[in-house]
Design a protein around this nucleic acid. Sequence first.
DNA 1: AAAGTCCGCTAAACCGGTTTGCTAAACCGG
DNA 2: CCGGTTTAGCAAACCGGTTTAGCGGACTTT
Lengths: 358, 358
Amino acid sequence: MDQVARRPRIADVAREAGVSKTAVSFAFNNPERLSPETATRIREVAETLGYRPHPVARMLTQRQTLTIGVLTPQALAVIFSNPFFGAFSEGVALVAEESGYGLHFISPLHGSLARAIGRATVDGVVAVGLSDGHPEVDQIRSAGVPIVLVDSTALPDHPSVEIDDEGGARAAAEHLLALGHRDFLVIGVEPPQPTTQVDPEGVMGRRLRGYRAALGAAGIGLPDDRVVVGPASVEGGVAAFDRAWEDGLRPTAVLAMSDAMAIGAMRAIRELRLGVPRDVSVVGFDDIDLSMHTDPPLTTVHQPIRRKGEEAVRLLLSIIDRRDVSKPEHRRLETRLIVRGSTGHPPDGRKEVAGVDN
Amino acid sequence: MDQVARRPRIADVAREAGVSKTAVSFAFNNPERLSPETATRIREVAETLGYRPHPVARMLTQRQTLTIGVLTPQALAVIFSNPFFGAFSEGVALVAEESGYGLHFISPLHGSLARAIGRATVDGVVAVGLSDGHPEVDQIRSAGVPIVLVDSTALPDHPSVEIDDEGGARAAAEHLLALGHRDFLVIGVEPPQPTTQVDPEGVMGRRLRGYRAALGAAGIGLPDDRVVVGPASVEGGVAAFDRAWEDGLRPTAVLAMSDAMAIGAMRAIRELRLGVPRDVSVVGFDDIDLSMHTDPPLTTVHQPIRRKGEEAVRLLLSIIDRRDVSKPEHRRLETRLIVRGSTGHPPDGRKEVAGVDN
DNA sequence: AAAGTCCGCTAAACCGGTTTGCTAAACCGG
DNA sequence: CCGGTTTAGCAAACCGGTTTAGCGGACTTT
């Protein structure tokens, strides 16, 4: 008998106020095209009816969603546990919000990133950590949505924000070399899709190249068995170091590609009753907020995580505003080594400074 | 002359394939209603044209967005810097993703939460930390969107997920009392809107009640000048403790309402050349992942943060599925004290065990 | 008084899909 | 060969708004 309360539509308001739909629409969007009395009367009627313009319908006609998407190749549940991502999102949110944009997180839906992006109602996308190994990159790129790549395989025809991964990695390795280390272990970040080999143009490839460049210049090789990978988390770092240890590796220095993993490595080292940096030195990568508060404070390669998020959104918004796809802009931010307490001379006492005790 | 590449619509595909729009729609959504040949032919045409159903249009007709909103009264940029929120989002994302829902973060747009929620195209909302002091709660609640409240002022007519704040707080205070402490400082979380006073039904009010209950039972009062607040971050904790110290307070025990703030307090204490727990004991609240790795490991009140997110989404989805608003469900999760290294006897040596020195 | 201008408002087209109701042809058993 | 049931596909209505083109009346101008 009595209908279940239906959401009032614009037509209901129009009928009730004795005006046209157009007038109601104007009352909300172009009040100056109505006489002030009519406008307020319409708004009053709308108020009593509890009418609110349907956001989806509005999106459809205005052809914009005021939403930007954050795309990650991994499930959100794993992404949010990574402090790096939190800081990145902070930067993204900052710029998005001040421009009136909301944030929509897109992750592989039932395993398919392409499907997920097809469902998403966004004006543009910031894609983070999309390596070329991923099978759906092309589909995503051809989806016709403005996109900015962050920490991804460099693609000349897409705007991107990156950091100097190679330089940062080189600095980290050089620091350890200068302290006298000769025996290294690299802990890398596992790609989301188990690819057979590292994309040399991806973040991991670039950092690896930096490490190798520095070590190579000192005449030290880095065979593949000295590179171990795992998920980018504290637990992943623990597991990675333990695995290397069980394989018989006894490095005096660990180069981790993420702070979370570096912290994990330090924990694993301590659980083996060894000291950091007394027995093993550890260098991280990222310089997340937490790293300065660990025990010992982590020596790491700083990258401007928040700014990376900010820049990515600025780039994206500039594309969205003036559909300017002509010359894709590539922005590269600096990295720098922050020396704290987790690195020191190797236990055998070899030192950089000539002729000192030991 | 040549048009700028317009996104192909369903009509384009229909014309190109020589069928009706209906057929194209069926080819994507009800292929079984078409002959297999026609269906594949249509899909091929769609493929070559680069056609993808417009997600907004689809939302409009299907009356669902497959998106759930996460609503916070604070700007996303501050939210994402809080590790608590990261863990919570993890739980939210986990359940949302496995049900095929995406995540949309809603925060005050240009200061107005109501406006932001009006813009958001979501099937339901998980609102976190919405205290009744907030002026727009009513508007939000009357927006007609299914909503689940988390860590908010209890509203009997809305489903909610909470924890035993009062019990947890009491346990924390009792622990310190048992260690012999008599001199307390409470560090609270500042509400997003500078309200004149604490909402007694909000999270902070409940925790405060727990602290006071325990202290009161031991004959100890907690005057307002012993409660200091700040933003829920490490820096906020540092600032809060420093402020109390400058005001001449010399507590032997700190009860912090968030782990981030507890960590900040520990830092502030150490910067004063005091020891934790030698000179001052600190108890946190939340038990974020990081807390077990601080130095010293933080004694804190554990709450199941991830599960809180999971439960909230489960509740929300059950409302969305069967529009069952009849009996709003209230779920309360347990808290428990985790004793680690940041608490000990007060420096004057008063002990729990009767008849000891001092 | 006729012509031009401005004001306030409306009808209809449109955004891009989905869904309902229907029809014509093919298929069926008797 | 005939009435009844499937099958394959279509036209039109619909979702809930915005926007364009235009219309009638009041007001100004000459």
